[in-house]
């Protein structure tokens, strides 16, 4: 093992973790309201509004059709505007968040749609406001499924950071391409992949653990 490998890995890993965390938070900030709106405005739901639903659905689909690497290029001006540069991890968070928010919105939409409409009607029949029904019934009832969905999104975002690394975002993907691929450093390539595998495993285990804890509380057998 070369002497420079460990420091390189540590820096790259911290950049990746930073990008994944920050873009997940930002993607949630965009995707959660979007996913909730997609559900509650759908036909027969809490606040049916098919016009808005169609528009949002189309916007989500448009963003989801972009290959991620193209989206980064398209959003370069926005990164420059918001962060001041198009290079580095923070600049990459802009396309990462915007690219994964629609994906996250669909995942959240699917989770929330699984909630039995009867429960929502029960809450409305008690005189609960729409917003109360969303926060106190819809989201808590979907929580285990939401956690699983967000876990999936975190892993997808981790993959996206590697793509972003190819065009200047830093992180493990960048390390693998610059050192492993371009300089024929097989040791770097191999080590990067191992670190990524471990990282994804940990996220998946963590997500499963939380979802399982929630489920066993709610759906314990007789």
């Amino acid at each position: 093992m070369a002497d420079d490998l460990l420091p390189l890995l540590i820096v790259a890993l911290s950049e990746t973790v930073y990008m994944v965390l920050l873009s997940t938070i930002m993607a949630l900030a965009l995707g959660l309201p979007l996913g909730i709106t997609l559900v509650v405005t759908s036909k027969g739901h809490i606040s049916e509004f098919s016009g808005l639903n169609n528009v949002l659905g189309t916007v989500v689909n448009i963003f989801r059709s972009f290959p991620f690497i193209i989206l980064i290029v398209v959003l370069l001006p926005l990164s420059r505007f918001l962060v001041g540069t198009t290079l580095g991890s923070t600049a990459a968070v802009v396309p990462l968040a915007i690219g994964s928010a629609p994906f996250l919105a669909r995942i959240i939409e699917n989770s929330l749609k699984e909630v039995d409409k009867g429960k929502i009607e029960a809450a409305l029949a008690m005189g609960a406001k729409s917003i109360t029904t969303i926060w106190k019934v819809l989201i808590p009832e979907a929580l285990p499924s939401l956690v699983r969905g967000i876990t999936l999104a975190v892993i997808t975002i981790t993959g996206f950071t590697a793509t972003a690394g190819a065009i200047g975002a830093g992180g493990l993907g960048s390390l693998a391409i610059r050192f492993g691929y371009m300089r024929y450093r097989d040791d770097v390539l191999f080590a990067t992949v191992i670190v990524l595998v471990i990282m994804v495993q940990l996220v998946q285990w963590g997500g499963n653990f939380i979802a399982h804890r929630l489920e066993s509380k709610h759906h314990i057998g007789m």
Binding site: D116, G118, K119, E121, A122, A123, A125, M126, G127, A128, K129, T132, K136, V137, P140, E141, L143, L214, H218, H219
Partner: peptide
């Protein structure tokens, strides 16, 4: 709030305890 309703499939909130379920309309 002054019209109670009960359902064939109960429609209880699975994420809330019995206490939480009965407390919900009172919170509302």
């Amino acid at each position: 709030k002054r019209i109670g309703m009960i359902f064939q499939h109960f429609n209880l909130f699975d994420s809330k305890t019995v206490f939480g379920n009965v407390a919900f309309p009172l919170e509302v």
